[in-house]
Design a protein around this nucleic acid. Structure first.
Lengths: 207, 207
DNA sequence: CCTCCATATGACTCTAAGGTCATAATATCA
DNA sequence: TGATATTATGACCTTAGAGTCATATGGAGG
């Protein structure tokens, strides 16, 4: 958590710091990100930085928290209208919201990509021990789907949950490399559908 | 390329250096790998290292080359027996060989994972400009498949090629986290099949 | 035994990182 | 205005990295 001093700052100053930090973390991995650069680009003294934050990790976690707060809004927007409990609908909502978020906030998306590419040690440093809870959630949904017969019995829930998580990352990364003309922007639904489709036809019950 | 001095060394010494380097690069990303550690673990002086190699990148590329030479043998073993030209057979052979290789050489696999997780800058540093040729190859096979009707027309070859490449990485990473008891070892075929299956049923022509 | 050449060495430089701290500047309030 | 609390500062510290170089070592041939 940032120190109280940081929150006492004027909104402009706080925003300036956040903005520079976002740029830094979207261009470099956590360990390659540099406090020196951030301080320089913000125009504050290095000593000041350490009046605001405990250390680099403190700032990084704070930035992640800000991002995730914004992302939650997206997810809610896409999930609230579905109450069916169908696994594929849920998946679709997750992908759609994730992709919409990435398109609206390319800088956040870049940070997410760096984050998911971190090695285990660094991920543990950042998250502590609570991790891959998203994966567990997906795994449970698959297990339920297998119970109620909507998903094939002969697949490993563990494995598919893993793959689905990775596909999420992969699609974000794919989007990063594309230019977003209006046509594409309006058809990202189709894009996420194609991923769900890929999974769905691969693991759904054959009838 | 290592300097001549390196190749003049006794085989034991060369192997010692390679072995330590493999360990280092399998535990750390390229930039986090440390010449100091390598030198220390090898028991040679730092000056000696720079008599053998131009710099860290020189060693890293050399190690990659050694690995890829071994990997080619695997791929050939799995690809030579198929001459059908069927896309899914090719995919299956690629996955099978990749997974078999990763199981037989977990250290190499770890290096591969780090490598594929590198950011763009570092990947360009390592490979120069020639990259993602594997992706292009897959893409072309998909395009052919679409021409001859074995693959659906309404999917993006570009996108699927990207996804397939990422799945390859994901499966290697997944395997890394598993312990290889005999049962699993003998059934990795089933494992790779499940990935192909995931893709095949997702993109094959519906009839 | 001496010369010569390839190999071996580790102290050294330079750079850049994260983080500290005594002090200066500024704002708040009596 | 003067006292007090808050914020700002940049020189400085430690650590660790890659890479250098003058010198030492050791073996082969005359």
């Amino acid at each position: 958590m940032p120190k109280q001093t940081f929150f006492n700052l004027s909104e402009e100053k706080r925003n300036k710091i956040k903005s520079v930090a976002l740029d830094e973390f979207s261009e470099h991995s956590f360990s390659k990100s540099s406090i020196n650069r951030i301080v320089e680009n913000t125009g504050i003294a290095k000593g000041s930085f350490y009046q605001y934050f405990e250390d680099k990790l403190d700032l990084y976690r704070y930035i992640l928290q800000c991002i995730s707060e914004e992302k939650i809004i997206y997810i809610q927007k896409y999930t609230e209208e579905l109450s069916s409990g169908d696994f594929f609908d849920y998946l679709k909502a997750t992908y759609s919201s994730g992709i919409a978020f990435a398109i609206d906030h390319p800088v956040y998306a870049k940070i997410g990509i760096f984050l998911l590419k971190e090695d285990e040690k660094t991920q543990k440093l950042i998250f502590g021990d609570l991790m891959s809870s998203g994966e567990d959630f997906v795994k449970n949904m698959i297990l339920k789907g297998q119970e109620n017969g909507s998903i094939r019995q002969d697949i490993s829930a563990d494995f598919v949950a893993f793959i689905i998580n990775k596909l999420n990352l992969a699609s974000t990364e794919y989007l990063k490399s594309k230019t977003f003309d209006d046509d594409f922007y309006k058809s990202y639904e189709a894009f996420s559908n194609s991923i769900i489709d890929l999974i769905k036809n691969g693991i759904k019950t054959v009838q």
